[in-house]
Design a protein around this nucleic acid. Structure first.
Lengths: 347, 347
DNA sequence: GGCAATTATGGTATCGATACCATAAGCGAC
DNA sequence: GTCGCTTATGGTATCGATACCATAATTGCC
């Protein structure tokens, strides 16, 4: 073997099982260009050659090398998704929506999670840009300056979808956490509740929780209800946490007649605690939730909640991203999706 | 511009924001090879040059191109994961475990879901092989012949982790669905239950459900309990489905004293239905579940269930895969992880 | 001090595909 | 019949990195 042939081997059996386009070309008695065209733009190739190529592909078991293809065409079919946590099932509908649309358009999905750390987000963005992703979907809406700079330099289209942030990097697809929270609070007020408590996840470093708290306060003001600090709580996520919040509020002297749990599974924990103690809901206290877990409708009593378009957020995010990736659009859209209040017997 | 320069532009400002290694090399006054080494094997470069390169990288905002790198080195740092559904929260712990380990080892995760179709699995495998993934993790354990052939040809290491299948493609990391189901049934028998019903997801095309049914039947036989077809049910997934199964069994003439729900959220739906009807559990009927949702421990009453190592399955899958990817091992391991029975007051 | 061994760096071919250009063949119109 | 146009195909440079080899500079050792 001459020194100029690093590890080039002729014929189909090479150490590495992968066959190349050249092998297909040889088998079909055409050039690699023709194979390339037969695969990605069949109309440009005569029916007879197209058939020969198809047979050759099957015969040698050819699987195209997208690394080479993307490098050469500087076009990639991979979209990167970065979210705080994979385990949190709230995000899984959104991922499903993204995945559905990407698959239909022959794109792949790469996922990374940050554990709620901006530093980890920056690392994930860097890694994805290194993979030359065609686009990014970010759940978070706050990013490190370095991350923003990298994204800007790279020019990849980006969708953020955690909340309807007023100053997106590029595109946003979400619902308004503030409006949703406000709507639910107003709903409770209209039902006649006067001492409405509010429980959220910690506000620090979570724009979504801050938006929700803001909506709650706005609704109180509109309803001419006094904001009572004894009725506002920040709790860590989790079922036990919801139960604890319930107890603290009910026994804390604030005397709430309704509690709005604006996050995670807190409301579920609280309702189960009521069952455990035999407290009637809404007799003892009314309970409303933020997220549309199926389970909320099956609890005893069924829980009033918001129906959020999580699947749709995923779908639309992928769609607007693909529009930009394929060049069908150059607009920096902001999509505000609808939410809905599902009234059930817990309020 | 000469015709030989397709779109080569000199200097740092090119239409596309990406800077190349060559730009870094120029800025640091060294060759691209030295830059390459400084980045991936710093010990091979003098401290002074290393520093110059680091500065140049920062100055030009260089993000390496992994497409080019992987193509050249025929080494990739992407792992593909294929599972039936992303939305099903059962899988999310496993994904989290995989993601945690991969991130620590500087690898990326690509995800596809099949919607429980073997055809879609084959397409996903083909797409991942086209991306030249370094390894595959498959949740399913049954695959189309074409899929098996592609994987074999490609030579990529594979981990399956849906169940401890006896004839894996390559490696397995899982627990034994059959043993777990058998253990829970024996547990119920030891508690004195004599008419133990069994509810699972549809058996067709689901090796896991079949394994579980087999374990149930084996345990009945060991316990010298008669198998009664009126006590065995297949139900679609979902909360409502669990409630319906409960009613069918209780009112179906089989007269069960315990029901073992071997899948999804069926048990949760059943327990909530009992709450709704005021049926005491286990007074009216005992209920046991298969999966360790947090929620099961918070229901009223808390539900006896199996603790399955879902996070650990993810972690170990990633670990054994990385061992093979990095060449630390050539063994086709099969890892049997432990499960545990969590006894609670529902039985 | 001389020579082998080691360390630091660069040159060039190559990974496997695609873009661009060139060219050959086919075809209708006048 | 010839011209011009379209259609089908191939040649070659290139994407951005790495592998391999060569070579220069430095060190160690008897």
């Amino acid at each position: 073997m001459s020194p100029s042939e690093r590890k080039t081997l002729q014929g189909a059996d090479r150490e590495n099982g992968a066959t190349r386009m050249r092998d297909v070309a040889r088998a079909a008695q055409v050039s690699t260009m023709t194979v390339s065209r037969a695969l990605k733009d069949p109309a440009k190739v005569s029916p007879e050659v197209r058939k020969r190529v198809a047979e050759a592909v099957a015969a040698v078991g050819y699987v195209p090398n997208k690394l080479a293809g993307s490098l050469s065409s500087s076009r990639s079919n991979v979209v990167g998704l970065i979210m705080p946590s994979i385990e949190n099932s709230l995000f899984s509908s959104t991922i499903q929506g993204i995945s559905d649309v990407l698959r239909r358009h022959d794109h792949q999905l790469m996922i990374a999670d940050t554990g709620y750390s901006a530093e980890a987000e920056e690392a994930a963005i860097r890694a994805f840009l290194a993979q030359r992703v065609a686009g990014l979907i970010l759940h978070d809406t706050t990013h490190s300056p370095a991350a923003v700079a990298m994204i800007r330099r790279s020019g990849v289209p980006v969708v953020e979808n955690g909340t309807l942030t007023p100053e997106p990097l590029d595109m946003v697809v979400s619902y308004s956490n503030e409006d949703a929270s406000r709507a639910m609070t107003l709903h409770l007020a209209r039902l006649g509740y006067r001492r409405i408590a509010f429980v959220s996840l910690p506000l620090a470093a979570n724009e979504r929780s801050r938006d929700r708290r803001r909506g709650y306060l706005a609704a109180l003001e509109e309803s001419r209800l006094a904001a009572d600090p004894r009725l506002v709580l920040e709790m860590p996520p989790g079922l036990a946490s919801g139960a604890e919040a319930l107890l603290r509020l009910v026994e804390g002297g604030g005397d709430p007649d309704a509690i709005f749990f604006a996050g995670d599974v807190l409301a579920i924990g609280a309702v189960l605690e009521c069952t455990r103690r035999g407290w009637p809901v809404p007799g003892k206290v009314a309970i409303a939730a933020f997220d549309n877990f199926d389970l909320l409708g099956h609890l005893v009593p069924p829980v009033t909640t918001l129906k959020l378009p999580r699947l749709e957020i995923g779908r639309r995010s992928a769609e607007v991203l693909l529009d930009r990736i394929t060049g069908r659009s150059r607009a920096a859209v902001a999509v505000d999706l609808r939410f809905e209040i599902i009234h059930r017997s817990s309020t």
